[in-house]
Nucleic acid binder design. Structure first.
Length: 485
RNA sequence: CGGGGCGUAGCUCAGCCCGGAGAGAGCGCACGGUUCGGGUCCGUGAGGUCGGCGGUUCAAAUCCGCCCGCCCCGACCA
């Protein structure tokens, strides 16, 4: 076999993932340890994620801004938990312009501190609130163990930062943004998630409460796919962000922050991908439909290519999918065979392939192949003049089918457990949902015994009470335990 | 930071144990032809400080020492 197949997902998931990222040209290793280059195809995917989220942020009143990459090191020392959490993974600039700096500068690992500093200058009155900001940025965290998209020294994300007059408003904001992440994952990426709250030991350094969306990867490990933090007045006090309320009383603001990173691309790969390669969710796919022309003779080539070119023009100009022009690519490479192209575009995860050959021309039709169904089963012939109306429906159908598959997978590997023995067995192959007393010792015990961590306390709770799966004490909530990335 | 693996052509690797003739294979790439409805076939060609530095030797990709880098598995994290 000239073109080796990917390692199969079931045999070696980690190797399958690595090779797929490289071969689909989403990213490549940079010459610096732990850093990656996001290649055009991967970045196009990220741009579509950005668009989908940005639109939602703006619709809920947020504005984009840009804060500096470099942050005075002393800023991190102002909030005790924050510095403890981030100090070990800071990259620090000590020299500039050939001279040693008076004060070292940290390359931002997140921007609460510098935004807090600016707010302390900008906020004077309750009339200045709320502050609803977001920035699209790169950040650096000196991770020891890296993996493309999932954990790299430098990564790209959006970080939302808001300041509010009241606790209630800030808490509402925290939950609103968590809801947006959940809805985005479901309706754009076809990824079902569990929304919940992080335990004390898993929460963000400096937060009062951290909320998360957790997604189940194809190897049944959990991935934190987005987070939303209620920061209380921790940063307000650390950076002295105060305002005068209606009664002329000086008050501290209440802040939130929330983020989703290029890690989400890893989730898309690991949730939907199969042994053939990527299966990109149609609404985020850089290419939604690829046209593969097929011919034998020069005369056929001329006829087929003419129709193919016209089709590409017509589809990208006339067909709107969810309000945006259909993203169509014509694969006019003449030095590779159709069979090669089929495999190539399947590896790259394009949702729909449009085959046009002499037989199709004769029937005034094209052959459509959908990526979510393998082989012949996913193929159908569609008349040329019905394609424009057919494609959006097909893309929706693929989206629904990907979501349904992922949802079924999640549900079939998420089990309620009653005993500790059950929990230990379940987390080897999936997620365990169990009564938990809320104590860190019990979480730690589970982690020590199984390497599974407390992923979250789901917002959806059964109610009532039970006995902690570890210690047997009274428990009022159930938590999800799983091995995670 | 602990454990493991690897560094020879763009990629995957052979050669190294046992030093010696011209530094190799497959893929990819370029050109020509052939093919094209599920990873075509043939030919020609370009392409290499054998990770770096030092040592041993008449002679080092090969033996020895030091260094550097990367990947994988664990603890930490989005």
């Amino acid at each position: 076999m000239k073109y080796p197949k990917l390692p199969s997902r079931s045999e070696n998931f980690a190797e399958w993932y690595n090779q797929l990222v490289l071969r689909a040209e989403l990213a490549d290793y940079a010459p610096v340890r732990g850093c990656m280059v996001v290649r055009p195809y991967g970045w196009a995917l990220w741009e579509n994620i950005q668009q989908a989220l940005d639109q939602r942020f703006k619709a809920t009143g947020h504005q984009n801004a840009a804060f500096p990459l470099l942050i005075p090191l002393s800023f991190f020392e102002k909030e005790k938990e924050h510095v403890e959490g981030f100090a070990p993974e800071l990259a620090i600039v000590t020299h500039g312009g050939g001279k040693k700096l008076e004060e070292p500068l940290a390359v931002r690992p997140t921007s609460e501190t510098i935004i807090g500093y600016m707010w302390s200058k900008w906020i004077r009155s309750y009339r200045d609130l709320p502050q609803l900001l977001n920035q699209w940025a790169n950040v650096v965290r000196w991770e020891l163990r890296t993996k493309l998209f999932l954990r790299t020294l430098e990564f790209y994300w959006q970080e939302g930062h808001t300041a509010h007059a009241t606790r209630e408003e800030a808490e509402e904001e925290t939950m609103r943004m968590l809801g947006i992440y959940e809805e985005f994952a479901r309706t754009e990426a076809a990824i079902p998630v569990v929304s919940g709250q992080k335990s004390e030991s898993e929460k963000f350094a400096g937060a009062v409460a951290t909320y998360t969306i957790e997604a189940m990867m194809g190897d049944r490990r959990a991935l934190q796919a987005g987070t939303s933090h209620f920061l209380g007045q921790n940063f307000a006090k650390a950076f002295n962000i105060q305002y005068l309320d209606r009664n002329n009383q000086l008050q501290y603001v209440w802040t939130t922050s929330w983020g989703l990173s290029t890690r989400f691309i890893g989730a898309i790969i690991m949730v939907h991908g199969d042994d053939q390669g990527l299966r990109l969710p149609p609404r985020l796919a850089p290419i939604q439909a690829v046209i593969v022309p097929i011919w034998k003779t020069d005369e056929e080539e001329a006829r087929v290519m003419e129709v193919a070119r016209n089709l590409k023009e017509r589809l990208s100009q006339e067909v709107l999918y969810r309000g945006k022009p259909l993203r169509v690519h014509l694969d006019d490479r003449d030095h590779v065979t159709p069979g090669f192209k089929f495999n190539d575009w399947e590896l790259r995860g394009v949702p729909v392939r449009i085959e046009i050959g002499p037989k199709d021309l004769e029937a005034r039709a094209v052959t459509l192949a959908r990526r979510d169904r393998p082989g012949r089963e996913g193929k159908e012939s569609v008349p040329l003049d019905r394609l424009a109306e057919h494609l959006p429906r097909l893309l929706d159908d693929i989206h629904e089918s990907l979501y349904a598959q992922a949802k079924a997978f999640l549900e079939s590997h998420l089990h309620d457990v009653e005993t500790y023995e059950d929990l230990k067995a379940v987390v080897r192959e999936g997620w365990a949902r169990a009564w938990w007393c809320g104590r860190a010792e019990c979480e730690a015990q589970i982690k020590a015994d199984t390497t599974a961590t407390n992923r979250c306390i789901p917002l959806e709770q059964p109610g009532g009470e039970g006995r902690c799966v570890v210690c047997g004490e009274k428990a009022t909530v159930k938590a999800i335990f799983a091995r995670a990335y």
